[in-house]
Simulated assay, not measured.
Amino acid sequence: MPQITVDYSAELADGFDRPGFARALHEATVEIAGARQPACKTLFRPAEDTVVGPDGDGHAIVHVRVGLLAGRTEEAKATLAEAALELLRRHLKPREGVTLHASAEVEDLDASYRKFDGE
Rank of each mutant, 00 (worst) to 15 (best):
Q3A: 00
Q3Y: 02
I4L: 10
T5I: 08
T5H: 13
Y8S: 04
Y8I: 05
S9A: 15
A10L: 08
A10G: 05
E11F: 06
E11T: 08
D14V: 14
D14P: 11
F16L: 10
F16V: 12
D17R: 12
D17E: 11
P19C: 12
P19K: 08
G20Q: 04
G20D: 03
G20N: 04
G20E: 06
F21S: 02
A22L: 07
R23Q: 14
A24R: 09
E27G: 08
A28Y: 12
T29R: 00
T29Y: 01
G34V: 05
G34T: 11
G34D: 04
G34S: 05
R36W: 07
Q37C: 05
Q37Y: 09
Q37V: 01
Q37M: 15
P38N: 08
P38F: 01
A39F: 10
A39C: 10
C40W: 02
K41Q: 06
T42P: 13
T42Q: 10
L43C: 06
F44E: 07
R45K: 14
R45A: 06
A47N: 12
A47Q: 15
A47G: 01
D49I: 13
T50R: 12
V51Q: 08
V52R: 13
V52Q: 11
G53Y: 14
G53S: 04
G56Y: 15
G56W: 15
D57P: 00
D57F: 12
G58P: 00
H59A: 15
H59F: 06
A60I: 06
A60Y: 01
I61S: 03
V62Y: 00
H63T: 15
H63N: 11
V66T: 02
L68R: 00
L69C: 01
A70N: 06
A70Y: 05
G71T: 04
G71Y: 07
G71P: 07
G71D: 04
T73K: 02
T73G: 14
E74A: 15
E75D: 10
E75K: 00
A76H: 07
A76T: 15
K77Q: 15
K77G: 07
A78I: 01
T79E: 14
T79Y: 03
E82W: 08
A83Q: 08
A84S: 13
L88W: 12
L88A: 07
R89I: 05
R89C: 11
H91F: 07
H91V: 09
H91Y: 15
L92T: 04
K93N: 13
K93I: 08
K93E: 14
P94C: 14
R95H: 10
E96N: 12
E96H: 11
G97R: 02
V98K: 08
V98S: 05
L100K: 06
L100C: 05
L100E: 01
H101E: 09
H101L: 11
A102K: 07
S103L: 05
S103F: 03
A104M: 04
E105M: 04
E105K: 05
E107S: 04
D108A: 01
D108S: 10
D108H: 00
L109A: 00
L109G: 00
Y113N: 01
R114A: 09
F116D: 03
F116G: 02
F116E: 09
D117S: 06
G118C: 03
E119M: 09
E119F: 12
E119D: 09
